[in-house]
Nucleic acid binder design. Structure first.
Lengths: 347, 347
DNA sequence: TTGAAAGCGTTACCAG
DNA sequence: CTGGTAACGCTTTCAA
């Protein structure tokens, strides 16, 4: 059995409270006593029971991180940073995946892992403002992504303008027939968004919708015809399949604007398979600037933003909410920029 | 304030025990009483406090997952599967990263997150058998990777023979000058295959050492000269830089055997930059068969193993240890195979 | 089948 | 500066 404060106290000849004081190191303890306690601590190889501590002071020292799909390199980058930066603050990270079941987001939001996490960073997919609103008394939550709501704090990039910028970059390069890959699966028309709880079908993720809007706006402004290629899931295999089929059935466009770098990976593969040279015959652009996109062939033009600032901002906001639930929700927008690489070089 | 069992009990006009019985659903409760309790549960939006439950039961319902570098797509795949399969067993997953500080592995091993996790899946890097031995009374731990020890349960692939098989595949394809990328950073001096004994300083990760051994063995058997390109970190940028420099200073080999697919990504990029065609002028092979390797240009020949079986095995072993700490440590070896794609086609 | 009470390991309050 | 004691919310003896 593991040693407890009582055991340590007994061995050191002090009370449990004193041991606690030594461990938490806030209160002044006489150096001599402290030494005795520390010796006992060491001797018994004392490890605090975090469940007990969590029960007592109402905080577990853990935060939750909920991402739609952990399989993607983008998720890996976010996870990596969250774990690293949370560690610096002394927090552990519990990880969850939401895409498998739509209601999971809502569950996490309303229960926050039943007090086992002190706060939650949620990258919502299906969630919209109404869902957030109706979640009842909220735990400390920060959304990462771009959801139109002001109930909880949020860190985001401006998806619409980023997509517009990228589409504009492609237009500026002289491309005319510019296809978007990764648009929502449902023709937009119903402005109402997907509602969580299984009542309405999802019409695509928030990011997907917003990027589609930015793309459309830029093309409309240049009087170009949009070409939308929908994807049910943002995976390389999905993109390769769908784009491959598109290439068989359609004239090759001047450029593909892929809504993530992962999609671009699949698109590059499909073009390669079809024997179409990039960028000579067709350009490709991505979104997110994942680490690997510098090493695709050719290297990928993409939308970049400071991921560390992004995650760091999320943790700041979370700390704020955890310290005081009554603070106004804040929103941090991280700037973005187009990183130009060979994949969109002028033919 | 959140509702507790007491509140629910009061509202339903029963005792806390009955509420507990209803929640855990093991003991028979009269349907009528059950209904009343469930109504109260619902009405008060009761959420159990997992810290309290954890304190009482001695189990938190969470496991830890510790990987060296969360940034890699390989880590994302493992994480994805662990979260998914652990979820099926009703476990939450706490995630940790170990590569940043070498002692972290040891800490995790000896403390297991101070009882906040019931078990730990650890992918060791620096750990060797002596470290495992000396960790003292062990929590439920399963190692993923290939460490030469039999103190704790382990799931692994046979790295040596997998690397040998891949090297042999390259030899069979007719390549003679075959370079390995990702070998340990050994101070050259020890005999060819830097074998490492118990206490010696680490000279690279376990996987790196074992793969180097398999590679050397195959080349030696074919009477070929090994060409080892060491890497301090298995990243695409590292590989691109080091291989790029290698290409400037040396004659291009017939093939690169990269010790991970991530390294292969960087290698392909370096070859592309140098204007060397793959596989026409130089072949490239990887290891792990990450999702993206089907979509590199050209698609990557690599070592594949059933990742789901791998993770599922790890969870089985962990469950075994958690249920009964006195069971013998077991070792599961997952079979591997070479997946042949265009990157190693005969010139 | 249900109720009362004890206790898991910590920390906080209040004495001394 | 330190010791006793209570309490966090839950589950689990034991009794009824």
């Amino acid at each position: 059995m593991r040693a407890t404060v009582k055991d340590v106290a007994k061995l050191a000849g002090v009370s449990p409270k004193t041991v606690s004081n030594v461990i938490n190191g806030i209160v002044f303890v006489r150096p001599e006593t402290r030494a005795r306690v520390e010796k006992a601590l060491d001797e018994l190889d004392y490890v605090p029971n975090l469940s007990a501590r969590g029960l007592r002071n109402g905080r577990s020292g853990m935060i939750g991180l909920a991402l739609p799909d952990l399989l993607r390199p983008y998720s890996a980058e976010i996870t990596h940073l969250v774990v690293e930066l949370a560690h610096d603050r002394g927090w552990g990270v519990q990880i969850e995946q939401t895409a498998a079941e739509p209601e999971r987001e809502f569950q996490l939001l309303s229960k926050a892992r039943a007090n086992l996490v002190d706060g939650l960073i949620l990258n919502p997919v299906n969630l919209d403002d109404s869902a957030v609103m109706s979640a009842g008394p909220l735990p400390a939550v920060v959304l990462i992504g771009d959801v139109d709501q002001d109930v909880v704090s949020q860190v985001a990039i401006d998806n619409i303008s980023a997509a517009r910028d990228m589409a504009q970059h492609l237009i500026d390069q002289g491309f005319r027939r510019i296809a978007a890959v990764g648009t929502p699966e449902v023709p937009r028309g119903a402005s109402g968004t997907g509602r969580v709880g299984g009542k309405t079908d999802s019409v695509g993720t928030a990011a997907s919708r917003l990027r589609a809007i930015g793309y459309s706006e830029a093309l409309a402004a240049a009087d170009l015809e949009p070409i939308e290629i929908a994807l049910d899931r943002w995976s390389p295999e999905g993109a390769a399949t769908v784009v491959g089929r598109f290439l068989e059935e359609n004239e090759t466009p001047d450029a593909f604007f892929c809504f993530t770098d992962t999609i671009a990976t699949g698109t590059l593969s499909a073009l390669w398979t079809a024997g179409i040279a990039v960028p000579a015959e067709c350009a490709v652009a991505g979104f997110d600037n994942i680490l690997e996109s510098r090493f695709t062939l050719p290297p990928l033009t993409t939308v970049d933003f400071d991921r560390r600032a992004f995650v760091s901002g999320a943790l700041d906001l979370l700390a704020e909410r955890m310290a005081n639930k009554d603070t106004e929700p804040r929103r941090i927008v991280i700037p973005h920029r187009i990183v130009t690489r060979a994949s969109t070089a002028r033919p």
